[in-house]
Amino acid sequence: MKLQMEICHDVSSIQSSIPLIVICLSSSRVGVDVSTAIAELPTGPNTAVLIFHHKKPHALPTEPSNALLKEDEFKNIGIIIDVAFFEDMGLYECDMNTRAYKSLISFIEGHGTK
């Protein structure tokens, strides 16, 4: 599989036929944070939202964000993935990040990226 990244500076240049990866920093309430991150984007089944939780391992949320995001605006998103990081640790080793890595790889592979 060959992965190519394209940075879009204009929403109109986003191609709905390829995976769109949206980065979201969870800083307050996850619903508000994700809603803000996807506000003007054409989300759909090819959209992955990576929610970065700035927390130490003991303080990570116990429930996945996709279980909390039940509003209609989130139903069209292909996958919602939780990621853990902390300023002095970066992306650290934990179950959340192991699942995130596997989920993101599976998502990209499942969308025919060549």
Rank of each mutant, 00 (worst) to 15 (best):
F74V: 00
S35G: 05
H58A: 11
K70R: 12
H53R: 01
L68M: 12
I38K: 06
A39L: 14
T43H: 04
A59L: 14
N66V: 03
H58E: 14
A84G: 08
L25V: 13
V30I: 11
N76I: 13
I77C: 10
V34S: 07
A39W: 04
L68Y: 04
L60P: 00
V49C: 01
K56C: 15
P42T: 04
S27I: 15
P61I: 01
A67V: 06
S65F: 11
A37D: 04
S65H: 03
V32E: 12
T43M: 02
E71R: 11
I77S: 07
N66E: 09
D82I: 01
L25E: 11
S35F: 13
D33Q: 04
K70S: 08
P45N: 15
V83G: 05
D72E: 13
V32S: 13
K70T: 09
S26R: 10
T62D: 01
S26K: 07
P64R: 05
A84Q: 02
E73A: 12
I80V: 07
R29T: 09
A67F: 05
P45G: 14
T47M: 02
L69F: 15
T36Y: 12
H54P: 10
S28C: 09
I38H: 02
A39T: 07
N76C: 12
L50W: 03
F85E: 02
K75L: 13
I51D: 03
N76D: 15
A67P: 00
S26L: 06
G78M: 05
A67S: 04
F52G: 01
K75H: 08
V30D: 03
A48N: 04
L25C: 11
G31F: 03
L50S: 05
A37P: 02
I81C: 08
K70W: 09
L68A: 09
E63M: 08
E40T: 10
A48C: 13
A37V: 03
L41K: 02
A67T: 04
S26F: 01
N66F: 12
V34Y: 10
P42N: 15
K55D: 08
S28Y: 11
A67N: 11
R29A: 06
P64H: 03
P57I: 15
R29D: 14
E87Y: 15
H53V: 10
T62V: 07
E87S: 11
D72Q: 13
T47F: 13
N66D: 11
V49Y: 05
T62R: 15
E71L: 13
E63I: 13
H58R: 13
I81L: 06
I81T: 08
G44D: 13
